[in-house]
Design a binder for these strands. Structure first.
Lengths: 179, 179
DNA sequence: GATTACATACCTAACGTAGGTATTCAATAA
DNA sequence: TTATTGAATACCTACGTTAGGTATGTAATC
């Protein structure tokens, strides 16, 4: 600790700060793993579908939700982009949803190569029920939290995701600087 | 808003509070999805293995990390429990790690039904390199954060995971009350 | 004619389930 | 006390399922 400068601006201070961050990350990493386990292997989606009598599989529900949140018909490619998956994956799910009558495909009048995917009334109702159930569960889990903590969680989680995404991008492409 | 009581204790206040929570959850859910995508499909694990010249697949690395963090040999069943997976899955990964010389299996002298899995020197070094790389990335991503935010993220993420796990458990088994 | 938007067919990774073998434990018979 | 035997435990092997990706074909557009 230099007597001239605050600790953080000295070389030793920066090193100690980095070490502190690494300690904190070491504590957070298992939490992230655990959270992933709860969300994926806890069959959260499957249980919500059971509770709301919607019987499609997980990625299909994901497509249906995407449509529901967009409030307008979407192209297959647009759905794929928003879900960050490749086209054929969406095509499969759209096929399944169509067979169950939850969506319809119409050729885009503006470009006949493209298909517009739109939820049917039944599809919209199913998505709405499903989402209410899921959101209700999460909201209940947070019911005992102080308002400030709930706000902070949303804020920090969002920033964390963004910063992590940005930082990982720089590992691939070092010409991009992180704002 | 009753003039007699603070809003939160009235029926209308509680309903509004619930609605507020649901709004906040609606904002958080996409973030969780996005975070899951970054962590899983961002091939984070694969890239860290590439960077540290460890070439096993993801679940195998997960087993190796588990061993590394325990600082002592573990049984196959114990690894499975800690990873929240079934035994055969661990067996597969242990087989792969053994073939690459990163771990050894020895019969547990205290119970010859069981196998103790222990990292070799090479395995320990690989796990250490891998973890340093990964933790470094996360720590760098959080480098610009105020110290308070980093602390809060760890705290809230941990509590969120715990509360969510507990709440989901009550959905299966309503006899359990949530502390 | 080149490109775009989608569909179809096939492949892979990360699990899970089913069922088998080797070892231990606990109860009973000799 | 020792031998026996049924049940439980710990693991392994084989196979199925799910959520994605890759490669390639076809129709519409530029």
């Amino acid at each position: 600790m230099s007597p001239q400068q605050p600790d953080e601006t000295t070389a030793r201070g920066a090193a100690r700060d980095q070490e502190l961050r690494e300690q904190q990350v070491l504590a957070v990493l298992p939490r992230l793993t655990q959270l992933g386990n709860v969300l994926n292997r806890g069959r959260l989606v499957e249980r919500a579908m059971e509770a709301t009598a919607v019987r499609v599989d997980r990625p299909a529900m994901s497509v249906l939700l995407m449509l529901h949140m967009s409030d307008q018909p979407l192209r297959v490619g647009e759905i794929a982009t928003r879900m960050q998956v490749v086209g054929p994956h969406v095509t499969r799910q759209v096929n399944a949803l169509q067979q169950r009558g939850l969506i319809v495909r119409v050729t885009d009048p503006e470009d006949q190569r493209a298909r517009l995917v739109e939820a049917t009334d039944e599809g919209k109702a199913a998505a709405e029920r499903y989402m209410r159930t899921l959101v209700g569960w999460f909201a209940d889990a947070l019911a005992g939290w102080p308002e400030q903590d709930r706000q902070d969680l949303g804020r920090l989680l969002g920033r964390f995701t963004d910063d992590l995404t940005a930082h990982l991008a720089t590992l691939d492409d070092p010409t991009v600087s992180e704002g």
